[in-house]
Lab assay of single mutants.
Amino acid sequence: GSLMYASIFGNVSAIIQRLYSGTARYHTQMLRVREFIRFHQIPNPLRQRLEEYFQHAWSYTNGIDMNAVLKGFPECLQADICLHLNRSLLQHCKPFRGATKGCLRALAMKFKTTHAPPGDTLVHAGDLLTALYFISRGSIEILRGDVVVAILGKNDIFGEPLNLYARPGKSNGDVRALTYCDLHKIHRDDLLEVLDMYPEFSDHFWSSLEITFNLRDTNMIPGSPGSTELEGGFSRQRKRKLSFRRRTDKDTEQPGEVSALGPGRAGAGPSSRGRPGGPWGESPSSGPSSPESSEDEGPGRSSSPLRLVPFSSPRPPGEPPGGEPLMEDCEKSSDTCNPLSGAFSGVSNIFSFWGDSRGRQYQELPRCPAPTPSLLNIPLSSPGRRPRGDVESRLDALQRQLNRLETRLSADMATVLQLLQRQMTLVPPAYSAVTTPGPGPTSTSPLLPVSPLPTLTLDSLSQVSQFMACEELPPGAPELPQEGPTRRLSLPGQLGALTSQPLHRHGSDPGS
């Protein structure tokens, strides 16, 4: 009898404990919600809404976190579960008819179910419309201010047509639940991603989709105040780019002037030289400038040598048109050559190039014969006009050509200096018209024969001689050997007369 009593008592207590286990969990969670309300000092109306929603959600799901349970299964099984949970929507909604099984599984994985109690606001006026909503159960109302403009029910759709707008718009009203509602919502990016994977279904979906109420604000059109608020930074940046392009296009129409201050000032006329910023005076940081632009901040801005204009002085008759350009485009679109090309026009420029290279940067340069637009006047290309890779490749080509020119210049200078040193070592320090008596009659020769300089066969020296023939050397430049009979510069000019005159010897006659 005691054994029977113990078994009955144990079973009854276990049954009672299981009955009250759900209630215990409910009270535990309710205590957490109330502690949250007390800690954050939530006001009474919002506090009442929180408690009511918790009670309804507990009775609806029995305190089970559906998302946590669903995430515990593998992905393939999750797709089947989501397809079952959203079967009513996918079967009865017209846009989803005719979709393949794979497309429906992908869509079912992207849908999220939302449960809303009465009085809950789903979308506020001015919120971004980031999702498309399908009503599965219940009814909602749409308000503009305090005026109800629409009441939607089961199988209705609200949001915005995503295929017509590249960016999400703003809501033009509040969406509030009238009863307990079940909503299926899919985010904008998720829907577009699935439709991109199934393009054959995309056309059918957009053609058959009928949005019951379009929440997009109709005033959000390009150029409206609301649109400016939504895309303020983007609009200002776009206007700045367009104004920069218009100014650079105007600059290219004036090829007669070359400016070292950047493309923003290349198009300024002579009357605007004294102004601080020219056409860019209202925004000094709008356009890029070269490193020399920092010198323009000092006094005497109108007389600054940074602004270059072609000189009108005539060229000498024998002067060549100019050196070879550094870039391939210089032959086609440049009416002034790079300062480095002028360094190779003569030997005198070679000796004085490194010492006063900055001073020569603004000297007169030889002109190319074609009066085409200036290379320095070409505006900086924006990322939309020329690819970045093209600019980098041009810079690399320019750097390689500069290296080759520097190597060639160093070799030419070394060769010229070597020839000058050899000339100085071969010439005796001094010569006299009267020579010392020699031991015999073989001493009648006034000077030792001097062998002429070897013929220069280097390509670089031939180019130097060509430049010497075309360029007029300055007075202080050293002379180079030329073709024809060679003669030492330090010898007297009348050596031929010395050989014809008898030598005057000093000596005593033994017979006297």
Rank of each mutant, 00 (worst) to 15 (best):
A430V: 12
P441N: 10
S312P: 13
P369Y: 06
N377G: 14
E331Y: 07
G256F: 05
R238G: 11
R360L: 07
E193Q: 07
H187S: 10
I140W: 01
G438R: 09
S312K: 08
N214C: 09
L395D: 04
P339K: 15
F205M: 03
D174H: 08
T248G: 09
S334K: 15
G138H: 01
S224D: 13
Q399C: 15
T499L: 05
G346C: 03
S445W: 15
L402Q: 04
R315K: 13
S224M: 12
G287V: 09
F311S: 09
S303R: 12
F234V: 09
L230P: 13
G264W: 12
D182R: 10
L461H: 14
F234Y: 11
K239V: 11
G507W: 11
C181N: 01
V194Q: 01
A497Q: 07
T435Q: 10
G159L: 03
Q463T: 10
F201Y: 10
L409Q: 01
S333F: 13
Q466C: 12
S381I: 13
A150V: 03
P270G: 09
G269W: 05
E229K: 08
G264Q: 12
G169V: 02
A166E: 11
G359I: 13
T425K: 03
E479A: 08
N349C: 03
R144A: 08
L453H: 09
D509P: 12
G323M: 06
L453C: 08
L178H: 06
S207I: 04
R247P: 08
V258K: 09
Q399M: 04
S259R: 10
E200Q: 07
D396M: 09
V148G: 03
L380Q: 15
S462K: 14
I350T: 14
V258W: 08
D156A: 08
R360H: 15
Y180A: 09
S202E: 10
L195P: 03
Q361A: 12
L398E: 03
R176P: 02
F201E: 14
R246P: 13
V175Q: 02
L326A: 13
R167F: 10
F134T: 02
L215W: 03
F344V: 06
R245A: 12
S171G: 02
G323Y: 01
G507T: 09
P314Q: 10
I221R: 10
C337W: 12
K239R: 10
P263I: 13
D509L: 12
V147T: 13
S333V: 10
P502C: 13
S445P: 07
I211N: 03
L261G: 10
G159P: 01
S462W: 10
Y198S: 02
K241E: 11
T415M: 05
R265Y: 11
C368P: 12
N155T: 08
H506K: 14
P320R: 10
Q421K: 05
E364Y: 04
N172K: 10
E471H: 13
T179Q: 05
P199C: 02
R400V: 08
P428N: 09
P452S: 10
F353H: 08
N163L: 04
V450A: 06
L417M: 03
V149L: 13
P492C: 11
S508N: 04
L164K: 14
H506P: 10
G496Y: 13
L143A: 07
R216L: 03
Q237H: 12
